[in-house]
Write a protein that binds this DNA or RNA. Structure first.
Length: 814
RNA sequence: GCCCGGGUGGCGAAAUCGGCAGACGCAGGGGACUUAAAAUCCCCUUUCCGCAAGGAAGUGCGGGUUCAAGUCCCGCCCCGGGCACCA
């Protein structure tokens, strides 16, 4: 027996080096094994790894290791996002090249990650910010262009006249530029590129059913809401004194007899036509301003009137700040009596309220008594020929009527809009298009890909787009006519990169195609995708769209990229999400230096279940470190025992130890296969360790040897360096990753006695220890023999006996 | 406002199917070892009453179902996240 101190600072580098040399994490090509593709969401290269990352990667890594020990061929790749805006801002601030900045950050993140020995297949590393990758972004762009899925249109952007640059919505503060707090943000029309996500809107919605069970319910419901399908009717109102018509969308055409005005979005073309664009401009800016949370309803009368096609009634046309240009037709009919928003608007501006729907079991509300709109379905009361019909029936008949008369039709609208991919930034994938004065918009020929970013561009943060200022980049010959033309200077949104990176992992070096169908088919769909819930609607819609688009290009045959999704909780520190910008980061480097990476990763899993937010407190780390050292001492002091492992108990202590061992194996295995509550897995392993400490002296050497070996294997997914070190100390051959996960033996795990709580009238009065197969009579007899139970039964009759075998006895007395 | 989560000891949490509330760990207390300290090992630790045996209360609040509720049902309150005038 020898006792050694646990020194992770020595052990971990030793195994890191060995594993690198062995290329331990390279993906197996053994096709006889079932595949398992596990992936954490692409990290952005912020340059600083924090405990939030470590927790995320520890979850995926524990799973990857477990699956590998279970005999799977595991793909667990690692990649890097290009993260455009921060790169560019850093470049402007520090006068550095954004590429250099990004690459330096990636190198730093990589170095820090490697000290944890996460089981990434570094051979399959990709960087989505390198030309080899954006070549294929461009290739996809061209395919979409051919199919009409990529198009260009005029679109309003936030514009700061001071910087002469485009602002993202979050850069608008109180209607002003974030850098020039006195300068109001303007709206500017720019030609922007879009991907037609709406072409797949029904697919995106219907296929959510396919994901049910594999994806968290809340993500599915967030996506449903985001897509926002609603059925209704489009109806034309005629402008008084002209033939022009304005189309409105409504889900409640049955209320149209109560329409008392038409309200246009401030961006509506009629507003400009009426010469009121200037009056509407501040409203548009206010709509885009994220800081103005609850915008008060505002509007103005245009002086014009429209005619209701059902009643022929003349109603005023208004402009309202709460009407959205991007939804429906950008114009509404206001029915104040039956829509709360319309009610607020009309009451504010003195527009009449006309109730036309009455509750099924009540009276038609009186306008002067109403304090809020009656928005429920009811009975059409004052609705011309449809009066008397229930709302649903009236809706159907009135829509049919509009179709018959040609002034409207049934319509489905979606909240989901096309994906604007244009960015007026330097650091991103250049859009492979050329504008020719003669030929129009012409795609760059595929043989000329990739279109590379020009080097040595000075970034100022001023001006429409940095690439526009580089003549060598912009001035090109038109590929069709050879005449002088201009290259598109916008770059692509970085969400494009993350929409298909996981396909590229299957074939990262392919220079003929984004990936080969065969290689992707070998791994897809992703068996387990892991990431933060903050991606529930953007990334996770875009990448689903991309998969469907690739399916229609004939590249793949499946509908969905990932069959299972796990959303892990955030790491909270001092009441806020841990992030570099908030300065509440716990540095893993420091923790690794002090306790080692095994401690850091095991603790990040032990502190809370992975799907729950984790309130970070340093105080528990010590305990995890103590536990690992405790295991280390226990195993190393018996490492030289020379006993052959044995699962045949020779005494009661052996039996108890083997029972605990197999109960723990069952528990940890079940956690991996279902809930991933690694905190309870680790608690179980701690209990096993405590039990072995208690029984240590009494165990026969073979059984002890057996228990120590299984314990070592159980630790592998959580503390791989320690596990490997102990495995070697025990004289076994590694790497542990290639050793089979311990099998669970139900016979050995079985308890031979069980403690049964005894209740009287539902109150705990004692416990009896019984054989597992004891009958109800035996249990009742034993219970009555218990001193305390007998005392409570004194002078009373047992009226009812409830016995749940092996669990509980409840005696009802009166 | 709508849609998701969540609320359990001094703290992080556990209780997987309605069946012993608080596993495991932290912090705290006590003991052993030590000249001493650290480290280690062992014990105690929901609250209140009690010397103890034991008793009472207890999972955000108020009701309900049940032999039995942290868990199921109805009505609220609070915290976190997401979406937000979606016609």
């Amino acid at each position: 027996m020898s006792e050694r101190a646990y020194r992770p600072q020595e052990i971990e580098p030793k195994w890191q080096k060995k594993w690198e040399e062995q290329q331990l994490y390279r993906t197996s090509t053994d096709a006889s094994k079932p595949k398992y593709y596990v992936l954490e969401m692409l990290p952005y290269p912020s340059g600083t790894l924090h405990m939030g990352h470590v927790r995320n990667y520890s979850i995926g890594d524990a799973l990857a290791r477990y699956k590998r020990m279970q005999g799977f061929r595991v793909l667990h790749p690692m990649g890097w996002d290009s993260f455009g805006l921060p790169a560019e801002n850093a470049a402007i601030k520090n006068k550095r090249d954004p590429g250099e900045w990004t690459r330096a950050n990636i190198a730093n993140m990589k170095r820090q990650l490697r000290s944890f020995s996460f089981s990434y297949d570094w051979e399959r590393e990709i960087s989505s910010c390198e030309p080899e990758y954006y070549r294929w972004n461009q290739w996809f762009f061209l395919q979409m262009w051919k199919k009409g899925l990529a198009y260009r249109k005029q679109s309003l952007v936030n514009w700061c006249p001071e910087c002469a640059t485009v602002l993202a919505n979050e850069q608008v503060v109180n209607g002003c530029c974030w850098r020039h707090e006195q300068t109001p943000v303007e709206q500017k029309e720019l030609e922007q590129w879009f991907f037609k996500t709406t072409a797949y809107v029904e697919d995106l919605l219907c296929d959510l059913d396919e994901l049910e069970g594999g994806w968290p319910d809340r993500v599915i419901s967030m996506q449903r809401n985001w897509i926002g399908r609603s059925e209704g009717t489009e109806v034309d109102f005629t402008l008084e004194g002209s033939d022009e018509m304005v189309r409105v969308f409504t889900t409640r055409v049955d209320t149209i007899f109560g329409a008392t005005c038409v309200i246009l979005a401030p961006q509506h073309p009629w507003v400009a036509e009426f010469g009121m664009a200037e009056k509407a401009a501040p409203m548009i800016a206010a709509q885009k301003d994220k800081a103005a949370d609850d915008l008060e309803k505002d509007g103005f009368f245009t002086g014009k009137y429209a005619l209701n096609p059902y009643s022929g009634e003349k109603v005023p046309i208004w402009v309202g700040n709460f009407v959205l240009w991007g939804y429906g037709t950008g114009a509404i009919m206001a029915v104040p009596a039956h829509d709360q928003r319309d009610f607020e608007f009309c009451r504010k501006f003195g527009i009449p309220v006309v109730p036309v729907i009455q509750p099924a079991d009540g009276e038609l509300p009186k306008a002067e008594d109403m304090i809020e709109a009656y928005a429920e379905y009811g009975i059409a009361a004052v609705c011309g020929q449809w009066s008397g019909l229930p709302s649903a029936e009236a809706k159907a008949q009135m829509t049919a009527f509009a179709e018959e008369k040609g002034f409207g039709e049934g319509a489905i609208t979606y909240r989901l809009r096309d994906w604007g991919v244009s960015r007026q930034r330097y650091w991103g994938t250049p859009i492979p298009m050329i504008h020719c004065p003669k030929c129009g918009t012409v795609p760059v020929p595929e043989k000329d890909l990739p279109v590379r970013l020009p080097e040595n561009v000075e970034l100022t943060g001023v001006g429409e787009s940095p690439l526009k200022t580089v003549p060598e980049f912009v001035n090109v010959a038109c590929p069709e006519c050879g005449g002088p033309a201009e290259r598109e200077a916008d770059t692509m949104d970085t969400f494009v990169d993350s929409s298909w990176y996981f396909y590229r992992y299957c074939d990262p070096k392919n220079d003929q195609a984004p990936f080969s169908t065969e290689n992707a088919a070998a791994w897809f769909p992703i068996d387990q995708y892991i990431g933060g819930v903050e991606h529930a609607v953007l990334h996770l819609i875009y990448c689903r769209f991309w998969t469907k688009m690739m399916r229609d290009l004939g590249l793949i045959t499946w509908n969905e990229p990932a069959s299972r999704l796990f959303t892990q909780g955030m790491v909270i520190k001092d009441g806020a999400k841990m992030s570099k910008s908030l300065g509440n980061v716990v540095s893993p480097e420091e923790m690794v230096g002090q306790y080692g990476s095994d401690t850091a990763r095991a603790f990040s899993l032990f502190a809370a279940p992975p799907d729950r937010d984790l309130d970070w407190q340093d105080s528990g780390v010590e305990g995890m470190s103590r536990f690992l050292a405790r295991v280390y001492r226990l195993v190393t002091r018996h490492a030289d025992d020379q006993a052959a492992p044995s699962a045949s108990p020779a005494n009661d202590a052996d039996k108890a130890a083997l029972r605990k061992l197999h109960q723990t194996i069952e528990r940890v295995t079940a956690d991996f296969d279902s809930r991933w509550h690694f905190n309870t897995s680790l608690a179980g392993i701690m209990e096993l360790t405590n039990e072995l400490y208690a029984l240590e002296e009494k165990l026969s050497p073979g059984v002890l040897a057996e228990c120590l070996r299984r314990l070592t294997l159980l630790l592998e997914p959580f503390a791989p360096h320690l596990s490997e070190e102990l495995w070697e100390a025990l004289g076994e051959q590694g790497p542990v990753l290639d050793v089979a996960w311990p099998a669970y033996d139900a016979e050995l795990a079985k308890d031979d006695s069980v403690e049964i709580p005894v209740q009287i009238n539902g109150k705990m009065r004692g416990k009896v220890t019984m054989a597992v197969d004891a009958s109800q009579e035996e249990v009742v007899a034993a219970a009555k023999a218990d001193e305390n139970v007998a005392r409570h039964l004194e002078g009373k009759t047992v009226r009812k006996t409830i016995y749940v075998p092996g669990r509980m006895l409840n005696l009802i007395v009166g």
